[in-house]
Amino acid sequence: MCKSMEVNIAGITFKNPVMTASGTFQPRECGDYVDMNQLGAVVVKGIASEPWTGNATPRIAETYGGMLNSVGLQNPGVDVFLQEDLPFLEQCDTKIIVNIAGRMIQDYCEVAEKLQGTSIAMLELNISCPNIKEGGVAFGTDASMVEKVTREVKKYCDKPLIVKLSPNVTDITEMARAAVSGGADAISLINTLLGMVIDVHQRTPILSTKMGGLSGPAIKPIAVRMVYQVANAVEVPIIGMGGITTGEDAIEFILAGADAVAVGTAGLIHPTALTDVVQGIQYYMDRYNVKHIKELRGLVK
């Protein structure tokens, strides 16, 4: 029997619900390890209106069952992205989603405008990166700002807009509702959790920025809980992420209310994790005779 993994998000059809998580995937480097043609979408690392250098090193610290990063959205800027990365991605049979970053509302709008009329399927608004001082998480933790940024960027955006939420808030549903009020076509969550690791021998923080974003299997129960809460609070499609490593992890997010999922840290540790998750979902569907993946969406009440 033919089983369908196809999902539709804001009018865009994806061959399966598995995407790369922004910030963990560099198309040209990762292309040596992952067959991008097998993915529902490739979500490109945060792109700003101009090149960003990112933070000083160390940017990476291992934690129990996860990792901290403080990369700080190092990126070549939208112009270089359009010239160099996009033509490469266009050769792949997958949807392209671009995560957009900014320090001020105007920065996001500028990137969105430059991406108009390109082959990109959707944009993802990054208002949740914990590693930059201005913009980023400062927008994502204030409901009125979430709504305002979303509304402004929508004016310059001819494609469906996903708003990526920060888990570093008291009530995630408040942020989700604000994004939807601003016109978000979909919600993705969660970005990394703000964390800290101290080297007890040196008696200093490991990261140059002292704090950074926690990701990996360690955060999965928090992410599942937040997806569940948001799915019960808003009507728009949800892309769930946070520690997904296997097909069963992905199913857990879908049962909690996600339409699609993204795999991040697992792909850094196991370069084939993304396609392994696709196969794992297929295996689950076969085992339980699920005809269409959307049957599972939000099944857990």
Binding site: E29, C30, P58, R59, A61, M67, N69, Q74, P271
Partner: peptide, 12 residues
């Protein structure tokens, strides 16, 4: 300090 070792995470 490295994350992935193959260019994906932009850590090192």
């Amino acid at each position: 300090r490295m994350g992935c070792g193959f260019g994906a995470c932009v850590g090192c």
